[in-house]
Design a protein around this nucleic acid. Sequence first.
DNA 1: AACACCTTCAACCGCCGCAAT
DNA 2: TATTGCGGCGGTTGAAGGTGT
Length: 326
Amino acid sequence: MGRAPCCDKANVKKGPWSPEEDLKLKEYIEKYGTGGNWIALPQKAGLKRCGKSCRLRWLNYLRPNIKHGEFSADEDRIILSLFASIGSRWSIIAAHLPGRTDNDIKNYWNTKLKKKLMGTLIPNQDHRFIIKPSPPSQMLPPPSNMIQQSSSPLLLPNFPSQPLSSSLLYRENLCYQPSCYAPAKSPLLFSGLDFSSPTSSVPTVSLLTNVSYPMSNYASDSILQAAPGDFQYDYSQMMNKQERTHHHKHLQAFMISEESHHSQTIGVWEPEEKCNDGYYGEGHMSSSSSSAIEYDLEEVKRLIINGSGSNNSVNAISSFLSNPLY
DNA sequence: AACACCTTCAACCGCCGCAAT
DNA sequence: TATTGCGGCGGTTGAAGGTGT
C-alpha cells in the first residue's frame, strides 16, 4: 500500500510564490510559529499550498537572517573542504555557513563551484585528468620519497570524463578526490601515493578532508585516515548505522606523517558492529594502539587551534583558491 | 530584432529516518 | 512488531533571464 499524499494535490497551488502568499506565510509563522506541523499550517494560514512547499519557502527564502547573493572566498573554502570530507550533505555544509541554506549551497555548487573546480583540471588523450601546475615560484620542494618527482602535472587515473554530478566524487569513493582541490605544489599531495593501483594498500592522502570516509576502491577495503591539521568529526551525526557498517567493516586508521611523507599505521579499529555508542573514536581502538590515536587526534586538534602552520586542509584550499589559474 | 542556446535558482519530487500508535 | 505520517534531505526540473550569433 502506498503512502497517502501529504496534501490534496488537486487543490494546492504550485509554482512560484506571490508576494501575497509570502506575506501570509511570514505573518502567520511570526505570529504563531510553525506549531510543529507543516501539513496543517497552510490551511491555518489561509494558503492553498502544500505544507512541504510552505516549509521550503520559509526555510529557503522567508525566514530571518537568510543571506542571499555572492558567496565569499571563505564560504567557498568551507564548502570545498566539507564537500571533500562528507560529499553532498548540503544540510551539514549549510550548518557551517550561517545564513546560507542547503538549497543555496547545492545550487551554488552545481552551477558555479563545480565548474571552477573542473577549470583547474585538464583532460588528456586517455581521458585522464591532470591538475594544472602552479607557477614555479609557488612550488615547494618535493619530498625525497615522492613517487612523482618530476615537475610535470600529477596524473589522476580514471577521472570521470562526464561532468561531475554533485555527489559523484563522494559516492564513487574516488581516492583522488581531495587532490582535485589541491594545488600541485602541495608536497603532501604526492606522499606515498600510487593512485594507479587498484589494489594498493597505500591509502590516499587526505589533504582537505578531516577524517575521510568511505575510502576508495583503490585502497584496501575501507581505510580511515587523518592528516596533520585535520580534525575529528563525529561521523555518527553524518552517517546512519547502516552506512557506517557498510563502509567501516575493517577500519584502519592511518596517520600521514608530514615530516616523513609516508603513511604510518597508528591503529586498527574494531569492526563497526562492535561499537555501541555510534561513535568512531578512541574507545574502539584495539588496546595496543589506543593511546597512539588519542595522542594524535589531540595533536591534530592542537594544530588546528594553534594554527601552527600544519593545517594542510586550510592551506591546501587557500592555495587552490589563490591559484592564479583558478 | 529574432532566435537559439546557456545559466541560474526556486520549487518540486520522491525517498528515508524516526516517532507515534 | 508493523504501520502510518511527518519532517528532512538530496536530486532534478523548468521557467526566466542572460548571452551569443
